[in-house]
């Protein structure tokens, strides 16, 4: 039996009231409920306030570079496909610096649970806009208001082939835990966008703001209808935020389409290949 304590590392350094506290606890709770010991869970952290969870969560981890958590996680999964691999990243990290990787991870349907902290700002660099910030948001880097319209990570993932898309609200612990567990049990790329108030740098998207605007999706709805998923996501254009699983379909994940990973042992553990002669033949 594992407990919350087993997964608890250093005391978090997040600002009091930060949505990261809720997300951190939800991830630990989900891992406890899944029941694997800390060493058996691989988590790749990006760089940012979200990535700082690396020191607060006891797991087999890589604290990688800004934007590169997804490709690192892809590598871990290829080398050891029998263990769950999570990505913990921020909106600037995953939708800005590393946006290309998200697109291609969706295409490849890599078997990863990608948990993105979406607070609309860059917290660790003290409050510049993130790609998810609403048009016109004023920040230190956009004093006249951001010109770009926000990226919608959910439509992006849906259109690029993600097989699981969910959203959660950091202020709703029970549902966030449920969504993360379901993302981890999904066999393929699972994107979980977590709406997360930044109490220090984002004075608009507060707990109060989200509480008034989130609405729960029923767990037992049909989640396989692409058009319906798109219409659910589009309610965000009117500041109505669906939380729960939005879309889930079965599609073979990347590693399950690799014949070389069909054996009993993971890639790293197999015996060395030594039958060189057939390869040499083509050079004669």
């Amino acid at each position: 039996m594992v407990s919350i304590q087993d997964f608890s590392g250093y005391a978090p350094t997040w600002c009091p009231g930060c949505g990261n506290w809720g997300i951190g606890m939800a991830i630990k709770s989900a891992l406890v409920q899944i029941g694997l010991p800390p060493a058996q869970v691989a988590v790749v952290f990006g760089i940012g306030c979200s990535g700082n969870m690396n020191d607060f969560l006891n797991v087999s981890a890589v604290h990688t570079l800004h934007g590169r958590a997804i490709p690192t996680a892809v590598g871990i999964k290829l080398a050891n496909h029998r263990r769950p691999v999570l990505v913990v990243a921020g909106d600037g990290d995953c939708y800005g610096e590393g946006g290309n990787h998200l697109i291609h991870a969706c295409r490849g349907n890599h078997d990863l649970a990608v948990i993105v902290h979406d607070n609309g700002v860059y917290g660790l660099t003290t409050g510049q806009v993130a790609p998810t910030a609403s048009k016109g948001t004023r920040s230190k880097s956009t004093p006249a208001g951001i010109i770009e319209t926000p990226i919608n990570p959910l439509t992006l993932a849906l259109t690029q082939g993600a097989s699981f898309i969910a959203q959660a609200f950091a202020g709703d612990m029970a549902q966030t835990i449920a969504v993360i567990k379901r993302a981890m049990s999904h066999r393929g790329l699972a994107l979980v966008n977590i709406l997360q108030p930044c109490v220090t740098f984002n004075k608009i998207n507060t707990y109060q703001y989200y509480r008034e605007r989130v609405y729960r999706l029923a767990d037992n709805d049909d989640k396989t209808d692409w058009d319906k998923a798109m219409s659910v996501i589009k309610t965000m254009d009117k500041e109505r935020f669906p939380v729960g699983v939005i879309y889930e379909v079965e599609r073979l994940s990347y590693h399950r389409q690799l014949p070389q990973l069909s054996g009993a042992l993971p890639l790293w553990q197999r015996r060395r290949f030594t039958d060189f002669k057939p390869l040499e033949k083509e050079f004669r």
Partner: peptide, 8 residues
Amino acid sequence: IGAGFAGA
């Protein structure tokens, strides 16, 4: 790097 970390 990810695969190397994991032992391959």
